[in-house]
Simulated assay, not measured.
Amino acid sequence: MLTRLNHGLSATFLVLAAVPALADEVNVYSYRQPELVEPLFDAFTEQTGITVNSVFLSKGLVERLKSEGDRSPADLVLTTDISRLSQLVEEGVTQPVENATLEAQIPALFRDPGNQWFGLTSRARVVYASKDRVSDGEVTTYEDLASDKWEGRICTRSGTNAYNVALTAAVLAHHGEDGATEWLEGVKSNLARKPQGNDRAQVKAIWAGECDIAIGNTYYMGLMLKDDEQKAWADSVRIVFPTFEDGGTHVNVSGMAMTKSAPNRENAIKLMEFLSSTGGQELYSEINNEYPVDPNVPSSDLVSSWGSFTADDVNLMDLAKLRPAALRLTETVDFDG
C-alpha cells in the first residue's frame, strides 16, 4: 500500500505500509528528491513491469531502518555522499550483494570493498566564480581558497554540511590535521558572510554581489538553469575545477545499498542492475546533471559543457574514515561562528 501524507511545513513524504511483499514490486527509501529519481523508476517499470514504491526521507533514514528491523518493507536505499553510504554499513542496516553485473559496470573506486554499497553517479566539489569579478585562472587550487587575496569574497553553506565535511576530510588526507586546521581558519577568515543556505543560495549571493566565489557541487548548475528565477543566478557564474596541489579535483558519490531485510531481493537486484547499466547511467546523468561512475558512459551534453577534470585519487572509504576528524576540526575552529 502506498500512501501520500503531508508532513511538516513544506516536505511531502511517501509512506509505505508494512504489507506482504508482492512479486511485481520493489520498495525504495530515498534521500534523493523525488523529481531526481522517479523518471528512473518509471523507465525501469516500463522495461520490466516491476512497480517501484518510493519513500522520500530528508532525514532519519538510518534511524527508520533500525526501528523497523527485519519487518522493514524497504529493499533499497538511494542516498548521496560517501559518509551517508558508509554510515548505512556501520549501522548494520545493509547486506552485501555479490553480483557480477554490478561489479562489471561499477569501477572498484565507486563501490564498497565488501559490496555493501554501489556508486551510481559522481559529482565534483567546485568553485562557482563570478564572470564579472573573477578572471580566468584566478582560482586554481583548494589550498588557494585560504589565501588572503580572497578576504571577504567567499560564500559557502555550513561547514558541518556533509558535502563540506567531505571536502575537509580530503584536505585532511592531503595535509594532515595541522594543515587542515590552518586551511579551515584561512577559508573562514575569507568569508563574506556567515555560512548559510544551500549551494544554490551561494550562487544567488554571487549574482547579488555579496561575494565573488562560492563552494558548491557541479549538478546545482543544471538545476538552476532549469528554473526560470534561478537561471539568472547560474548565468552570472562559471564553474571552475580546483585541484589539490598534489592531487586532483575532489569528488563525491551518490549510490545505492540493499537493506538487510529486502523482502523483494530479486527485484531489488534487477533495479540495481538497471540503475548501473549504460541506459540507466545515461538517464541518471541527463536528469541529475551528474557524472556516470562507468567511465564508458558519456556525460550529458550539458554536464560535458562545463569542462573536464581529473578526479582526486584519495580513496572514498579513506574520506569516510576521516569524516569524524574533519567534523571535529570544523567545530573546533568555529567555522560557522
Rank of each mutant, 00 (worst) to 15 (best):
E25M: 01
L22M: 10
K59W: 09
L14W: 07
Q95F: 04
G69K: 04
F118L: 01
L57T: 14
L78M: 14
N27D: 14
P107H: 12
A100G: 05
G69E: 02
I106Q: 03
V52K: 01
V55A: 15
D81S: 15
G49L: 10
P113R: 08
H7F: 09
A74S: 12
V89G: 05
G69Q: 03
F118M: 02
V93S: 06
P34L: 14
Q47K: 10
P34T: 14
P96T: 03
L36E: 11
I82G: 05
T45Q: 08
V93D: 06
D81Q: 15
D75C: 04
E98S: 12
G92I: 10
L85G: 09
F13P: 05
V28S: 03
T48F: 03
V55C: 15
N115D: 11
P39I: 04
F13C: 11
T80K: 08
E25N: 04
F41V: 01
R32S: 13
A11S: 10
H7N: 07
T101W: 03
E46F: 02
G114C: 05
Y29N: 12
S30A: 15
P73Q: 01
V89H: 08
D24I: 01
D70P: 00
A74M: 12
E90K: 13
T121S: 10
A43N: 02
Q95A: 11
V127M: 13
Q47L: 02
S122K: 06
A108G: 07
V97H: 03
S30C: 12
V77W: 03
S122Q: 06
F118Y: 15
F13M: 11
L78W: 06
Q87F: 07
V89L: 10
N53Q: 13
E103N: 13
L40M: 08
L78I: 14
R64C: 05
S83K: 13
R84M: 14
S58T: 10
E98Y: 07
A17K: 06
V37E: 09
R111Y: 03
S58W: 09
G8M: 05
T12F: 11
E63Q: 10
S83Y: 13
E68Y: 04
R123G: 09
G60R: 04
L102Y: 04
L88D: 00
S54R: 14
L85I: 15
R64Y: 08
P107W: 10
Y29T: 15
H7Q: 08
P39R: 06
Q87G: 05
A43W: 00
Q105A: 14
E90Y: 06
D75G: 06
G92T: 08
R71T: 12
Y31A: 15
F13S: 10
T80R: 07
D24V: 00
I50M: 04
A129G: 12
L57C: 14
S83C: 11
I106F: 03
I82N: 04
R32Q: 13
E98L: 09
L16W: 00
S122L: 07
